[in-house]
Design a protein around this nucleic acid. Sequence first.
DNA 1: CTATGCTTACCTATCGTTAAGTAAGGAGCC
DNA 2: GGCTCCTTACTTAACGATAGGTAAGCATAG
Lengths: 187, 187
Amino acid sequence: MPRPSDTKQRIQEVARELFARQGVQRTSLQEIADRLGITKPALYYHFSSREELVRSIVQPIIDEEEAFLMGQEALGEAEPRALLEGYFDFHYRHRRDIVLMLSELTTLADLGLIDLVLNWRGRLVKLLYGPEPTLEQATRAVIAFGGLQDCTIQFADVPKDELRRVAVDGACAALGIEPQRETRRRA
Amino acid sequence: MPRPSDTKQRIQEVARELFARQGVQRTSLQEIADRLGITKPALYYHFSSREELVRSIVQPIIDEEEAFLMGQEALGEAEPRALLEGYFDFHYRHRRDIVLMLSELTTLADLGLIDLVLNWRGRLVKLLYGPEPTLEQATRAVIAFGGLQDCTIQFADVPKDELRRVAVDGACAALGIEPQRETRRRA
DNA sequence: CTATGCTTACCTATCGTTAAGTAAGGAGCC
DNA sequence: GGCTCCTTACTTAACGATAGGTAAGCATAG
């Protein structure tokens, strides 16, 4: 029964699940097709190559993180807690795909996206401490941002708002910032 | 030229490098053999399967971390800074293999080692805060230990002692501990 | 002679990918 | 309504490449 089908999206859904569970490399097109009860070449009707399927899953998240960073950079030097909260929200929202990307750096390399992703940490540090941070500042930032990321992955079952509060508090502590309740600036 | 050869170790060295650079899955036995100027069946003379080669690289690190944890657990509740320093030292020493393991969780799953590895975080938290930590405590611990791990990977070019100082200070800050200079306990 | 440490040659399974064909359903004209 | 035409959404069949793995044999040092 032709005319609009949702097969393309269903392929992406199954692929995300299998990629996350057993890795991109270990997931064959055959396996994805079998899950959906279609044939392997049917995938090629919707995606011109295996690489395009992988990219279609990864690229939107990359684009969104890139947009987040560019938005923050446009503001000049950031207010730390607001930056941490924005970072947490983004990573919490995409935690499933983030863990996929972190465990598939070689896949990102294949897609030519690895340099972009590896530069994110550096850009975050610069947002907090300017273009030439000290080693102390850089390590604190790595601990804070890495810690937020880890928390969104590790405590996937904790309600978002509760996790957000304790995780951002922890990141603030790592940075040596007194935790103000939620984002509120005073002149 | 028979009689003692170091081929087995040279295979492991090349495998570690290729596994780390391009991933375990993307590295074929053929490629490893080519690097060494030997043939693929020669690998099978030294390792009975591909899986055994992978395991021979990963297992020693797992065993050592396991030993470290069991040693700490035998002491009862740990002195935080000493625990953080021990954790840092271990991860700094094996940072190349650690990054390999972190980016190859699916490989660890194949080897049946994944549950062990994923439980490490929980055991570390218990070492700091006992068997039933609060969410606050658990997040702080994840940030601290994850941060130490990240630092050993991120700042691979920084001299060990300098990195150790700033990284452990950062982890202490995340835990809310005042940083005492180095480990020294007073009764 | 015997064990070690390989090589040459080969097998089978599976991978991503392509070519070619086809059933189902509008759209447009009469 | 019926006929043609095109698009959508697949299927069946097969391709070449490469993967992990094996069987059998040969050279060399002890």
